[in-house]
């Protein structure tokens, strides 16, 4: 390895260590710090455990929530939970509607490093009729200027599932015939 080159701008250090493995950063007081490239990757054996049926459902075009099994509670979850957070009883799987409304939304122009290449992307929290909690999803086929709270949306499923929450996304629901402007 060659002797590390000196830098006075910290932002130049990363490119240097990625290329040459090491750099010397010199601060305003003249203090030199040796900085090295230190990569770290890991592949987890991640189990969806009690959430598994949700992700298996997405892969076959079914959106599942869960419902509290206690008759006097019966809370319905738009994002499934194995146990009810209201009363602690186990929940059972239910199928959710494939249509809902936007409860809130944003367009992300940045993201975690792994997601930067997908920007800009929209996030939406969807509310369903008769369901007590929300679902966070990607919203596609529309841009920032079109989206609004209350907008009707419907689900789309990934034909080649990756067993991820990104196997489902929502799109604006086409306006019903009666809502379209009449012609002539």
């Amino acid at each position: 390895m060659p002797a590390p080159r000196k830098f006075t701008k910290f932002r130049e250090v990363q490119a240097e260590i990625d290329k040459n493995g090491a750099a010397l950063f010199v601060d305003k007081e003249g203090v030199e710090s040796l900085i090295i490239h230190s990569p770290y990757t890991i592949h987890y054996i991640h189990s969806y455990a009690e959430d598994s049926a949700f992700f298996l459902g997405l892969a076959s075009g079914v959106l599942r929530g869960s419902k509290c099994s206690k008759a006097s509670c019966g809370f319905v979850y738009g994002t499934p939970r194995g146990h009810c957070m209201v009363c602690g009883s186990p929940t059972t799987w239910i199928e959710l509607p494939k249509e809902g409304r936007i409860h809130s939304w944003t367009t992300c122009h940045f993201g975690g490093e792994a997601f930067l290449k997908e920007t800009p992307y929209n996030l939406a929290m969807v509310e369903f009729d008769g369901v007590g909690s929300l679902l966070l999803v990607r919203l596609k086929e529309c841009t920032e200027s079109e989206i609004y709270i209350g907008m009707p949306v419907e689900a789309r499923f990934e034909p080649k599932p990756k067993y991820s929450i990104t196997d489902i996304w929502f799109v604006p629901k086409p306006a019903a015939a009666s809502e379209k402007p009449r012609r002539g």
């Binding site: 992700f55 944003t106 992300c108 940045f110 975690g112 996030l123 966070l136 990607r138 929450i165 990104t166």
Partner: peptide, 16 residues
């Protein structure tokens, strides 16, 4: 499981 894979981005959550 449910939130991170959508963008890995806290600013997005606060925007919501």
């Amino acid at each position: 499981n449910f939130d991170f894979p959508l963008g890995g981005f806290y600013t997005g959550y606060y925007a919501l």
